[in-house]
């Protein structure tokens, strides 16, 4: 009896460790490779022989890439017959920053695009969810069900028509138009989830609070801001984070709409372009991957309780 107990316990912990190993190994590998020197990449050990922080400092812009002008070029440059203009041209070729991966730039792009889209989505959703949960009118449950049906439409079904529409309207030609289109697409992609989650939450707020405010002369719009919004703050944060994460990770629409506008790339397409470029160096790619994941993981860990509650209540769309 005792022995079988011990065996059971050991088996149980063995399984737990196995599950942890399976889920965490890729992340450990990511971190490990991001800190390794090139000669160390093929080494199966996860601990770097010598720590290499250079890819992080390069990505974050702490360290300018070293400029090496070959000796022969130096001699050429010192040639007095060379015009100043030509000298500058040659020098530019060697000091060109075109192969530096503009991580910070992409990071800010993603932050702005995802942040704006999530904010607009949240604003629309507050009103829509209020309507769903508090106002009685014919057709309400029909609309609610209709909104949930949009879960079935994947990005691929919308990709061609949205692209065609934006070309015809003339938005696809300019960077401003393309970014605008992308933001609006993210708003719509996250809206059904936001509506659903907020609607469920608003239903849990006692209606008597609102009635009291209305007796005191508050208009309906005012009660939304004075009663509903303050009481739902944790849920509003949760919904915002979900909408933000969906936009932060999105690849398909970003690749379709931002394709021709390099300087406005978001992180997913930026990292993908880094991977296929000539600078595909594992330590840099892994460092960029870690830096891309860090904000999301940090935010999730901070709000874990609320976010998990949201997840199990249908706060997801893939």
């Amino acid at each position: 009896m005792v022995i079988s107990r011990i065996l059971q316990k050991t088996g149980f912990y063995f399984l737990i460790i196995l599950v942890l190993l399976f889920t965490l190994f890729p992340f450990v590998q990511m971190l490990s490779t991001s800190l390794k020197h090139q000669y160390d990449w093929g080494n199966p050990s996860l601990i770097p022989q010598k720590l290499n922080w250079s890819s992080y400092s390069e990505l974050l812009g702490f360290q300018k890439k070293e400029v090496k002008v070959p000796e022969s070029i130096h001699r050429l440059l010192n040639n007095p017959k060379l015009s100043a203009e030509k000298r500058q041209k040659i020098l530019d070729r060697f000091t060109s920053t075109s192969d530096v991966f503009p991580f910070i730039n992409y990071f800010i792009n993603t932050l702005l695009i995802a942040g704006t889209a999530a904010a607009i989505s949240l604003l629309f959703a507050v009103f829509g969810a209020y309507s769903f949960s508090r106002v009685r009118y014919r057709g309400r449950s029909g609309i609610q069900r209709g909104v949930l049906l949009t879960y079935m439409f994947g990005g691929v079904l919308l990709m061609v028509p949205l692209y065609q529409i934006s070309v015809q309207v003339g938005l696809a030609n300019t960077s401003t138009g393309s970014i605008l289109t992308l933001v609006v697409i993210y708003v719509v992609q996250t809206l059904p989830v936001s509506l659903y989650m907020l609607g469920n939450y608003f239903r849990s707020i006692p209606e008597s609070l609102e009635e009291a405010a209305q007796i005191d002369g508050c208009s309906r719009f005012k009660t939304i801001f004075l009663i509903i919004v303050p009481l739902s703050l944790p849920m509003l944060v949760t919904v915002y984070i979900y909408a933000f994460m969906i936009a932060w990770n999105e690849y398909l629409f970003a690749s379709v709409f931002l394709k021709n506008f390099n300087e406005f790339y978001t992180l997913p397409i930026g990292l993908k372009s880094l991977f296929v470029s000539k600078n595909a160096i594992w330590d840099r790619i892994m460092a960029a991957s870690i830096l891309t994941a860090l904000p999301v993981v940090f935010v999730f860990m901070t709000f874990e309780k609320h976010l998990i509650g949201g997840l199990t209540e249908g706060g997801v769309k893939e």
Partner: peptide
Amino acid sequence: IAPLISEVFAWQF
């Protein structure tokens, strides 16, 4: 919860 693009590179490695 981690971004897909990061995970893909880890798996590719």
